[in-house]
Design a protein around this nucleic acid. Structure first.
Lengths: 134, 134
DNA sequence: ATAATTAATGTTATATTATTACACTGTTAT
DNA sequence: ATAACAGTGTAATAATATAACATTAATTAT
């Protein structure tokens, strides 16, 4: 399987680095504050980098949180099939890697005659840790 | 099956009415502009109504669009299991009613030990109409 | 029936998230 | 070398959402 070679620009690399180092999803303005020492000064610089990184599948947006997380799944260069588990208590987010699930959803067809190119699934609940503490 | 009786307040009813009449999802501020003649003056009044309506399952939030749509599924009073199809071209949104899908996802467990209470799934593609036009 | 509790309201201000517009730079392809 | 494209920098502003506070209405418990 050929891996598409992607060149990252300076800003894109800076933004990717901080997202990859983070333990969880980061918000755009939190990224901004954290990269100001690296010369990125304006929201738009961050948003432009995010847009590109999403497009090439290096990161994903957690829609319910308006936050961005590094892709943890070598399969999704294309980023067209994403699933996450989100803890309602500690807010921990994990990308779900499950071949059965992704096959099921990728091949899903309903009666609308629409063939889907992309999906995003967000599961909510309590993670193992938080379940014990309750 | 007992149906939970839900009393809606004035503002909640106003907001629900406009969402139910709409052909597609509405944004919060578009709702606001449309209900100002009914006495709702501030964003917060809209957001509070939306919050309640979501909680009781009368409407859903389309996370990828920050927009709100009436529930089209008598099964989801609880609103804990939602799936939508979204056309990338005309932006039409439809709630997916598919018992197999909802069973599959409600019972889904990955290896994290997390049992999910809620999910939201958004599919993207071209609807029948837009596919023909391309 | 009334006190306590909970849910909803109204209003102002402000926080947070994201985009438009415009001028410019560097790289790639012909 | 020039057109096409992707990226940059900057300022301004649009769009989305919440905090804080004072008040009123509805529900529940005793």
């Amino acid at each position: 399987m050929a891996v598409k070679q992607e060149y990252l620009s300076k800003n894109q690399q800076i933004v990717l680095n901080i997202i990859e180092k983070a333990k969880g999803p980061l918000k755009a303005y939190s990224i901004l504050y954290n990269v100001q020492k690296k010369g990125i000064k304006a929201p738009l610089q961050v948003y432009r980098a995010l847009e590109k990184l999403i497009k090439i599948g290096k990161i994903h947006k957690i829609e319910s949180k308006n936050a961005f997380i590094a892709c943890n799944n070598s399969d999704c260069e294309i980023s067209n099939a994403t699933a996450f588990s989100i803890c309602d208590n500690c807010e921990k987010v994990k990308e779900i890697k499950n071949l059965k699930l992704s096959k099921y959803l990728t091949n899903f067809e309903d009666n609308s005659g629409m063939k889907y190119k992309k999906y995003n699934l967000e599961f909510f609940g309590l993670c193992k840790n938080c379940k014990l503490k309750q």
